[in-house]
Design a protein around this nucleic acid. Structure first.
Lengths: 115, 115
DNA sequence: ACATCATATGTTGATATAGGCATGTGTCAA
DNA sequence: TTGACACATGCCTATATCAACATATGATGT
């Protein structure tokens, strides 16, 4: 099998650098496709397709004004990612981990209840 | 070109569900490959390969005890992801966004012929 | 209607994947 | 040394991508 589709969830969608950059641009507020094309150095089809992926996972939403499609971030779609990553905060914030590692090293005895 | 390598960065590495699950298992502490194989329902080569990816991006670290390879999480490697996602917190925490969305919708809706 | 602007979509080609299975490497025990 | 155990790695196939170019859709203005 191949990799999971980029449109599977936010995790897969934000794996691509260009898509993260697009989201960063949209942090400044709504932007049309052309604006994004200018600010990043991507072709229009590239941006449109990336936006399509982001739309599928609801990371961005679109509003049409005349012939311009104005995109904006829907940060809520990033919550699952945020929450998931957050559960690992302890693993870089707490010094206890260092102690834990040390204990693990000290306790590293080959288990004998086998065989 | 194809998608960026899963070993490019943490973003790509955690895009895969199995790899996230492996990291979750390791939240309980060190675990050998066989332990992970048992707790998740994956084959041993699958787990080994996923661990290889996680090792490449330094999301896990390994320590060998006898013939067992004990893996543990290196949460620090998730910091870039955490920090990046965190910049979007405002987009789901602030009520102002709701108001913004509402205004956008009101300004964008062309008259419909539904009635 | 027509030309033009702003986006979306389709196609092709190269590439990296993930699963399945087999096999290699390294360790322990007798 | 031999065998069993724990894990890593190699090969294969199907698949989903991403860039690039071309083209279709849709709205605007004259």
């Amino acid at each position: 099998m191949a990799r999971a589709a980029t449109t599977t969830d936010a995790f897969n969608a934000i794996a691509e650098v260009s898509r993260r950059e697009i989201l960063e641009v949209l942090t400044d507020g709504e932007a049309a496709v052309g604006d994004i094309v200018e600010r990043l150095r991507l072709t229009q089809p590239q941006v449109s397709k990336h936006l399509g992926v982001l739309r599928t996972v609801d990371l961005v939403r679109c509003r049409t004004v005349g012939r311009r499609h104005l995109y904006r971030v829907n940060g809520a779609a990033l919550r699952p990612v945020h929450d998931w990553v957050r559960t690992f905060e302890a693993h870089w914030n707490e010094r206890l981990d260092r102690l834990d590692d040390l204990l693990d090293d000290l306790l590293a005895e080959p288990p004998q209840e086998e065989t």
